[in-house]
Design a protein around this nucleic acid. Sequence first.
DNA 1: AGACCGCAGTCAAGCGGTTAACCCAATACG
DNA 2: CGTATTGGGTTAACCGCTTGACTGCGGTCT
Lengths: 342, 342
Amino acid sequence: MKRTTISDIARECGVSLSTVSLVLNNSPRISAKTRARVLAAVEKFGYQPNMQARALASRSSRMVSVVVPHLRHVFADIYFGEIVSGIYDYASEHDYKVMLDVANRKFVQNREYLNILKTRRVDGMLFIASSMEDTYLKEFDGRKDAFLLVNHYYPDTDLNYIMIDYKDSARQAAEHLTGLGHCRIGLIAGVNTYTGRDFRDAFIAACTCRGCREKDIVVTEGGRDWSQEDGFRAAEKLLSESQSITAIMAANDRMAIGAMRYVHTHGLKVPEDISIMGVDDIPDARFTTPGLTTVHHPLYTLGRRACEVVLQLFRGELDAGRELIAGALSKRESTAPPRDMR
Amino acid sequence: MKRTTISDIARECGVSLSTVSLVLNNSPRISAKTRARVLAAVEKFGYQPNMQARALASRSSRMVSVVVPHLRHVFADIYFGEIVSGIYDYASEHDYKVMLDVANRKFVQNREYLNILKTRRVDGMLFIASSMEDTYLKEFDGRKDAFLLVNHYYPDTDLNYIMIDYKDSARQAAEHLTGLGHCRIGLIAGVNTYTGRDFRDAFIAACTCRGCREKDIVVTEGGRDWSQEDGFRAAEKLLSESQSITAIMAANDRMAIGAMRYVHTHGLKVPEDISIMGVDDIPDARFTTPGLTTVHHPLYTLGRRACEVVLQLFRGELDAGRELIAGALSKRESTAPPRDMR
DNA sequence: AGACCGCAGTCAAGCGGTTAACCCAATACG
DNA sequence: CGTATTGGGTTAACCGCTTGACTGCGGTCT
């Protein structure tokens, strides 16, 4: 009841173990004739090499680890879902497998994030967007593991990252809104991430640069989940504190949708009374009423590229990887010139 | 720049390789004193055993594979998310890792579903709810791999499964609605799964058993995605074809929510004009207006148990595993007695 | 003709663990 | 006192594959 191994194939063909191995690894050192014989035997036995043995000998597990934050329904979040899909597809196309990890307390306390690489369980690790609180990431500073932050970064370290260019998205959003004539804008910011802060600062800078007075950009914090509820509450706060704003900019679509719901339930019309804009371009953004103007962020592509980079890092084809991917304005119906401009 | 291995530890302590190995595997054959010495060295070097080597020698990769269907946003689906979370948590608590797989064309054509087990990449496999079209699953019939269908089953095979008791949920739903006095009910069924068909048949049976006439249970097919849009369209069809129904039963919450949206946009009130009921109890069900009456399905628990079973199958502690997990009625505001009963 | 050079394979030393079988001193027992 | 048992380790044979070094050989170059 034993599984067939490489030596069964070798015996069957009357060649050595190494020959079979070389055939299986597409080495050019084997003649076409021998190769065909070996492959026929492989086919005949339905032979599949044992990945553990292969990994042990070759020092490559052909597996990457994807680490997602420990959030309530992280496996039901389109934001993470898109990135994971991108990673999975790229990995799969290159005969890699994806291992899942959740950065929960156990993961951090036991320092599993280091052990996973140390135990050679995976060739590389991808950390999807965690928050500023995840200071343990600093431990990777100085190590030369195939390690990549996906859609976030860690200041003052040499950690590799690939992420959406949030500053640029902020600029695009600011230009769109100011271009329509808005100059008193409420910003629902996400401040528990470095990218969220960058977005906030870049947005304010871009607005003032285009003629808004800094005090007319009213900032409120969304909340740590960046959820619809957070957006709802933030809009409530924003509108109760300053009635004069003509537009709300949210740091992601979910909060924008929550804000829109608040605005609607309070008898205001979007975009006639107030413009609302988000960031990310999640599928739902298309189906809100009115459709949500947002900055499209190619998260699937980001995931694919992240996986590509981490494999290059593993193979030593890359020393450091730091990339920014630009978003693009996606204009829908939730933004329009303010009332007094029409 | 080599990693520390088991022999480094052995040398440091002046014991043999096997002693270290036995300590690491909690063998009772080593004295407390020696054990302490070894563990101290392990600590000192920050040693972590190489999992590939361990897997090769011990014939266990301490990893399970989770296969999800190839759907549009499967990594962003609360239904799959809950199950995966359950699997992940159980696995993680037992020092297992989770490998991800998507049953896409490549996966099926290359018969990867067999290779993953053959190549010993994983100890067990969990297939989350696929449809009746996934006939390739039949190939597992007769094999004694640690293999489990999660929340579906395959008739006329010996494939192991663990799933929600959909027939029972159908009965509970039918009893709730008929109990309120409904006897003309529209059913939005999901018919591309065996469990969906069972649900439909059991629902009809339970209704007729409780006095409804079979022709008053109007059945329409939802669609292959079981999505809100599917529910929306199905409700439209249902209400245009038979105005007399007083309740709509959907085979899952998402379709129920879609149906509710249709009903609302057409000026009818839930539950005054028509009752609506779903199945699953996803988080959104709590936040609809009115709150959706549904049958709660413990998907997280299902995932946990599924992982437990598959590991027991792997260790040979279980020969076959076939389990049903019961749902429980979750009464909210979307169901009430029909107009003529009040 | 002799040195040299691929070409097509083979040899054998790993990769880093696990575990059945064995070994030896100390204790238990008749 | 001789023998069986047991606690605590060790030995060595794998697990199944990769890969650098080596070999034999026919053809090239000088």
